[in-house]
């Protein structure tokens, strides 16, 4: 998966500014950055949900614009920031609908949906209506839908939003399991500390600022503090608790 010199302009301001990024198969990439730095747009550009004003997107070596909607769905599954609509829909129907790209009978689709729900730890929710679920339960439905879609690459936009700390940790643990299964994971995160829940050694962190990559490095290389400073524009202080490190925003520089 690659973005080459990708630019997206809204009004007169670039949201992505000639951004070039390559993600290899089976990699774990975390995208961080302040609000409005272009994190979500980066995912949407890869998915083809926003048109590029210049530059190009390559998916598995082919230009995105050459792929049909079904081929895109086979390559990439997406967890958007906005939650599922508050419609009266059965959980199993919602999960089964993520399998649109397969030409299969309804029976097969429902069976696959049940398996996905089980793998996402949500087997008990099968018969519920989605508009009656809690935030954590909805999250499990979203993850089950992504499993059901069986795409190679997972693109997640703030998957930890609106979740309690336990569910945040569980979601990230779930993602590291996907990595072990050979999926590529691209995750937008506000909170870098959540990366501590990922067991995978090789986590690449990409920091965006004003539509450009301001810093990138590997988690655990020790210079995350420098990266956060470049991305957010203020110094961060390191704190250690147990075997985890935490980064706390420091004083705003006085002009």
């Amino acid at each position: 998966m690659a973005l080459d010199q990708a630019t997206v302009i809204a009004g007169d301001r670039p949201i992505l500014d000639q951004l070039t990024l390559e993600v290899g198969e089976g990699q774990m990439v975390a995208i961080i950055g302040p609000n409005g730095s272009g994190k979500s747009t980066l995912l949407r550009a890869l998915l083809g949900l926003v048109a590029l004003d210049s530059g190009s997107v390559q998916i598995e070596g082919r230009p995105l614009t050459d792929l049909t909607a079904r081929q895109r769905a086979a390559s990439m599954a997406w967890l958007p920031q906005d939650s599922l609509p508050a419609e009266r829909l059965r959980v199993e129907d919602v999960v089964a609908s993520a399998r649109f790209r397969f030409s299969e009978s309804r029976q097969d689709g429902i069976e696959a949906a049940h398996r996905a729900l089980e793998d996402a730890g949500a087997a008990s929710l099968v018969d519920r209506w989605i508009n009656e679920l809690s935030g954590g339960e909805r999250q499990r439905i979203e993850l089950a839908s992504m499993l059901a879609q069986e795409s190679k690459c997972w693109l997640l936009d703030e998957p930890a939003n609106h979740l309690d700390p336990v569910w945040r940790a569980r979601t990230l643990k779930f993602l590291s399991k996907r990595l072990e299964q050979g999926n590529t994971v691209l995750v937008v995160l506000h909170d870098v500390h959540l990366l501590g829940h990922i067991d995978a050694v090789e986590t690449r962190v990409v920091g965006l600022r004003e539509g450009k990559i301001a810093w990138q490095g590997r988690l655990g290389d020790g210079d995350l503090g420098e990266g956060l400073k470049r991305v957010h524009g203020i110094p961060f202080e390191r704190a250690v608790a147990g075997d985890r490190e935490y980064w706390i925003p420091g004083e705003e520089p006085v002009e």
Binding site: T68, R72, W78, E87, L89
Partner: peptide, 21 residues
């Protein structure tokens, strides 16, 4: 009906699941 089943959970979601919206 089949593409409509996907569209109820959102236009953009449907697009990423293979529907030619």
């Amino acid at each position: 009906i089949r593409p409509l089943e996907v569209l109820v959970s959102g236009i953009e979601r449907a697009r990423t699941r293979g529907v030619e919206v």
